Amino acid sequence: MSEESGHLARPGYRIAWKRVAGEGPTVVWLGGFKSDMAGAKAEALADWAQARGRAYVRFDYFGHGESEGDFRSGTITRWREDALAVIDELAAGETVLVGSSMGGWIACLAAMARPERVKALVLIAPAPDFTEKLMKPEIPPEGLADLARDGVWLRPSEYGEPYPITRELLEDGARWSILEAQEIPIEAPVRILQGGEDPDVPWRHALELAQGLKGRDVVFTLIKDGDHRLSRPQDIARIVAAVDEAVS
């Protein structure tokens, strides 16, 4: 089964997407902060979907990859809305949400907004509340000064050019916090894969999410020598196996 591509119209911009037609629940890929749908994990799932005849959709958020928009204007609110638009307009029936890093947070928010559409979640190094819990505490004094003066801080990145972090992103992210809730109202089965040597999302952060979920069918897998990306062949094999289980 070949993969089709297109653009989904949103107010003032368009989201780029790719889709494989197939059977069963639609697997929806939700990428990470400043990543895109051309990454190794998203590509591997496209290959799996075509080989297995499974339905699969991947897309780029506003300001990411092939989609339109200025990344600096992106917020959790906007990216959540992008995910919901893809689920509503490009995925038929039940879905399995596969969220990586920030995409794990977006997947949880989408599952809370569309519980009747979500069969299961597979979360890879999930980073819920990362703006408030992981990013904000690490901003150095000069970064705080940049945010106060310019509304943006250029955060160094191991993965390429510095990431522009805006005051609006931080303030908006705080509004979507889920870890502070007494219980995270997600009852669908959840599989979490987390690297023990992840420098960006500590494994205890991902475990806090697992422990806060309302549902009982939650499995947390710690890959002791795994990093944040979990893109080694053995890591990708684990991810594909988790997705394969989730759609069955």
Rank of each mutant, 00 (worst) to 15 (best):
M135T: 15
W176N: 14
E245Q: 14
R80Y: 10
A49N: 04
R204C: 03
C108Q: 11
R19K: 12
L30Q: 08
L193P: 08
P233C: 01
A181P: 02
P185V: 01
L230M: 11
V86E: 09
E245D: 14
D146S: 14
A40G: 10
L147I: 12
D217N: 14
T131V: 12
A85T: 09
K133T: 13
G104N: 04
E171M: 07
G31P: 09
G6K: 00
D146I: 10
V96M: 10
A38P: 03
L30D: 13
L90W: 13
T77H: 15
I87R: 14
L134K: 04
R19D: 07
G226C: 12
V218Y: 07
E68W: 03
Q234G: 00
G215H: 04
I76K: 06
A49W: 03
W48P: 01
V57D: 11
G195S: 09
L45T: 03
D244G: 15
S5H: 03
E94H: 09
S5F: 04
A9P: 04
P162A: 07
F220E: 10
L169D: 09
E142M: 12
A44Y: 01
A16Q: 05
G160H: 11
S248T: 14
E161K: 15
G151Y: 06
Q234P: 03
W176S: 11
R14C: 00
A241D: 14
W153K: 00
A83R: 08
E168Y: 09
P126Q: 02
H228Q: 00
G160C: 08
L123W: 06
I15R: 00
E138V: 12
D198N: 04
E94Q: 15
L222W: 02
D235E: 13
Y56H: 06
A38Q: 14
A85L: 11
M1I: 08
R114S: 02
V20F: 00
P189M: 08
A181G: 09
Y13L: 01
A241S: 08
L179M: 02
R155S: 15
A188D: 04
W79L: 07
L134R: 04
T166E: 13
G103N: 02
L45C: 02
G103Q: 06
W29P: 05
R54W: 02
A145D: 14
R72E: 15
A46D: 08
V20W: 01
H228Y: 02
Y61Q: 05
D172Y: 09
E23A: 11
F59M: 07
A120N: 07
R204P: 05
S157E: 13
A237N: 03
G160D: 12
I165E: 12
G39D: 14
S67A: 04
L97G: 10
E4C: 00
Q182P: 06
P141M: 12
P162M: 05
F130N: 00
Y163I: 15
L169V: 04
E68G: 13
V243P: 10
A85I: 05
W203R: 03
Y163C: 07
A237R: 13
Q211H: 07
W17H: 04
V20L: 00
A92V: 11
